[in-house]
Simulated assay, not measured.
Amino acid sequence: MLKLKDGLKIMELLNAAGRPRLFSITFVTADQSRDTGGEVIHYPKAILSRLRRSGRPGKQGKPGKLKGGIQYHAKNRTRNICALGSSQVRMLHIDLVLEINGRSIA
């Protein structure tokens, strides 16, 4: 069993080239506003998706500033992931993660 914080660290790992590492993940969907969810989703190969940073000063603001505004993933306990081979980014609630790399989350 993994603690949630250790599972999140696995999701945030980078390879030698500085790109996100692949991991497998199983989670449950939920949408309180639409009163839907409960579907178990498994991605055998996924990466953590992040906003791109702009490296140009000027209209974009200071170098390294997040494009598109700040997303409050830590406050809302969410993360964006992308299944390998897909361009769709999916937001998930970290408390609904069941497994990472085949190890269940405590």
Rank of each mutant, 00 (worst) to 15 (best):
K9N: 04
I10P: 00
H42T: 15
T36K: 09
G18K: 15
L8T: 04
A46N: 13
F23C: 01
N15R: 05
I10D: 00
D31F: 04
I10C: 00
L14S: 10
D31G: 09
L2S: 02
L22V: 14
L48P: 04
D31C: 15
T36A: 07
G38S: 07
E39A: 14
A30E: 14
V28K: 14
F27V: 03
I47K: 15
M1R: 08
E12F: 00
R34V: 10
Q32V: 09
A30W: 08
G38M: 05
R34W: 07
K9P: 00
I47A: 01
E12S: 13
A17D: 11
T26Y: 00
V40G: 03
I10Q: 01
T26N: 01
L8S: 02
G38D: 05
I41V: 15
T26C: 02
H42I: 08
Q32T: 12
T36S: 08
S24M: 06
T29L: 05
T26F: 00
V40F: 02
A30S: 14
A30T: 10
G37S: 06
Y43S: 07
G18S: 14
N15L: 03
V28W: 04
R19E: 11
T36V: 11
Q32K: 12
L14Y: 05
G38P: 05
P20D: 01
L4C: 04
F23W: 02
G37A: 07
V40N: 03
P44I: 11
L4S: 03
I10M: 02
K5C: 04
L14G: 03
S49D: 11
Q32E: 12
P44T: 10
E12W: 00
D31W: 07
S33Q: 12
G38W: 06
L48H: 11
L22M: 08
A46V: 15
L22K: 12
L14P: 03
S33H: 11
D6H: 02
A30R: 14
H42M: 07
F23D: 02
V28G: 01
V40Q: 10
T29K: 09
P44L: 12
K5P: 01
L8V: 05
D31P: 04
G18Q: 13
L8Y: 00
N15V: 10
S24L: 06
T36H: 02
G18A: 11
I41F: 05
S24W: 03
I47D: 01
L8D: 00
L8I: 10
K9V: 05
M1Y: 11
K3F: 04
L13I: 06
L48A: 07
D35Q: 15
T36W: 00
H42V: 13
D31I: 13
A30N: 13
K45I: 02
I47T: 15
K9L: 06
S49F: 06
F27C: 02
G7M: 04
S24I: 06
L48E: 08
F23M: 03
L2C: 02
V40K: 09
G38N: 06
K5Y: 10
G18R: 15
I25V: 15
R19A: 08
D35G: 12
R21Y: 00
S33E: 11
D6Q: 11
S49V: 04
A30H: 14
I10S: 00
E39N: 09
A16D: 12
H42S: 13
